[in-house]
Design a protein around this nucleic acid. Structure first.
Lengths: 352, 352
DNA sequence: GGGGTCTGTTGAAATGTTTCAAGACGTGTA
DNA sequence: TACACGTCTTGAAACATTTCAACAGACCCC
């Protein structure tokens, strides 16, 4: 009848004290059942456990944490929750956290520095055990401040010059190299690099790698044109596509290397929508190898990052820093690898 | 020099007590500065604030929560973090939480009931203010238990028979109707429904809607064929595509309505990869209208759910339940709408 | 029967904050 | 001068848990 029944009026949620009374033991014993069950005799333990079940006891984590001084949660501050890449990273972290019997608190800065700051503030207040973060700005000064407080911080998908933190990431320069090398092998002699803003470290490094290999093959630097974007998003990819289409045909690149897959998908969509054939008229390489890269109707060639593995490794470093007194900071660098698909199919091959 | 400098050995993180000592006021005054600044004189307030800054004081949320009895966080238990739809919902929740000055704790059950249970356990221990959840199973009994404890629970993207909870969702039957009506209008007389398992409420309802409109147009039920899948994922979409291709040409549906966009993208990929033209040989309609639907190289027609709005509305209901003593449970149902794109372009129209 | 050891159990202290009744102090009024 | 009133400030109690030194009792051995 009453559709919004709440807990009975007089009843608080029961505490250890209530359990102790119900099981007719002392407070300390209840706590022992919770934390060191082997120390209490089977008979008492069973009595206490029954009392807990009867009362519907749920341990109060705040009180536990206040007294014990240690929290049971890790946090990951994501850069962009709408980018599947970061969700895969998060999943890797989550798995590692699960193994260590910790909770993972996921926050999303959404690319906004001030939101990132709010999140970090709150995490500090919560006294989380450690923070994993893909920061908005590479030089986020808050992070140093946090590290100085003794809270482990691991930077994900980004590297710092300094060795003040652990970090995990992929060799972005190498990633840029293999992407463009692949395009060169496919016979392209005029290539676009799509990406930006260049405040983002990855963008700079991937471009750097592209330029390196381009030079090593003795190509003219002017034939590697950079189409800058304001963000690494699908819509920016589309707009880059329009700019690309605007270039006179004889000067237009026949291939594009995009700084991530979202850009590549946008570019692909724009190109196909405008009637271009992919890869015949325009070959496209993305970066990250998110699931949607393979699922695109013209499956996207991409530089794969070990997404989940990245998260897992980051979490491991964090846990080491949190528990191992001899911990030394470490920059874990993974090797990216090219996954060739239809969007760059060999130009001589016919497409079904 | 020392690359892993920690906080100075003897120093704990400072407490209100330390601040009080430094500012030469009582403990209570520091607390007032924190919670009712208007009650303390400007001079003292300034002194206390200076002391906080000097000491690098960070309020201990556990202690606050223990004493105040109320937490400042909401939680969302996601069903599948790799599905962009749920991330958009989460973003809507996050925005509403931000407005209410609450933190959002995001967990991911990943479709596993036991993981969901662990998360809920922990959330109970944390005494979160309320829980938003897209449950793995519609009848999750834990939820009743939690509600009975007086903790507000809102079900997201799913409806319950009972009115024991608030919930938000879209009219899935209507969604199925408009999707199939669109295909009928496009001249299709044999249509496939791709989706499963049918333990999922949305799948059942979307199919139900499809069948309703099919019947209302006087079509033969046998011409609406159901291709069941084991999950709502891209790879299941691909495999459904293979089964579809296996049907003899004269009996094969010319259009498919997929229970969500991931399935639709998988199906699209498989079809195009196998040489079929979309929409000429196979028209495809998805559901959710995730960003990647529009970005697919053959942009996907989809039934749009107001993704972010769904999250926002859910959070509002939760906050109402948490704060308004006269709260009544409410099932908010949004109206889905068809977004027509190239994957079902009018059959008579030529494709650019 | 005294001493030692081992196993379980206890009770009090401690954690960092908020709240609240009560106190201090100053100002204005009779 | 006494009193009332306002404005700030204070100190102690309370929140739910964990920890730890101390203790009770059982058992064994000489």
């Amino acid at each position: 009848m009453v559709s919004q029944q709440r807990a009975r009026p007089g009843s608080r949620t029961p505490s250890v004290k209530d359990v102790a009374a119900a099981a007719d033991v002392s407070l300390g014993t209840v706590s022992n059942v919770l934390n060191r069950p082997e120390r209490v005799s089977p008979a008492t333990r069973e009595r206490v456990e029954r009392a807990m079940a009867d009362l519907g006891f749920v341990r109060n984590e705040s009180a536990r944490q206040l007294r014990a001084g240690t929290s049971r949660t890790l946090a990951y501050v994501m850069l962009d929750a709408t980018n599947p890449f970061f969700n895969d990273v998060a999943q890797g972290i989550e798995l590692a956290a699960e193994d260590a019997d910790l909770s993972l608190f996921i926050c999303n800065s959404n690319g906004r520095a001030e939101r990132e700051e709010t999140h970090l503030d709150r995490l500090l207040q919560q006294r989380v055990q450690g923070i994993l973060i893909t920061p908005v700005n590479a030089d986020a000064p808050h992070l140093d401040e946090i590290a100085r407080r003794g809270i482990p911080v691991v930077i994900v998908d980004r590297h710092r010059e300094s060795d003040a933190f652990c970090s995990v990431g992929v060799d972005d320069v190498l990633g840029g190299r293999i992407a463009v090398e692949h395009l060169i092998e496919q016979g392209h002699s005029r290539v676009a690099f799509v990406g930006g803003p260049d405040s983002i470290g990855q963008v700079r490094e991937r471009l750097e790698g592209a330029r390196q290999i381009w030079a090593e093959f003795g190509r003219n630097p002017e034939d590697l044109v950079w189409l800058p974007t304001d963000a690494l998003s699908v819509s920016e990819g589309r707009s880059a596509g329009e700019r690309l289409a605007g270039i006179a045909a004889r000067r237009r690149p026949t291939a594009a290397f995009c700084a991530n897959d979202l850009l590549a998908l946008g570019l692909l969509q724009q190109a196909v929508g405008a009637g271009a054939r992919v890869p015949e008229d325009l070959a496209i390489v993305g970066f990250d190898d998110i699931e949607f890269a393979a699922a695109a109707a013209v499956p996207l060639t991409s530089v794969r990052q070990p997404r989940q593995e990245l998260g897992r490794a980051a979490a491991k470093l964090l846990l080491d820093e949190a528990t191992n007194p001899h911990h030394r900071h470490e920059q874990a660098t993974f090797i990216p690898e090219l996954v060739a698909r239809a969007s760059t199919a060999n130009r001589s091959a016919t497409q079904s």
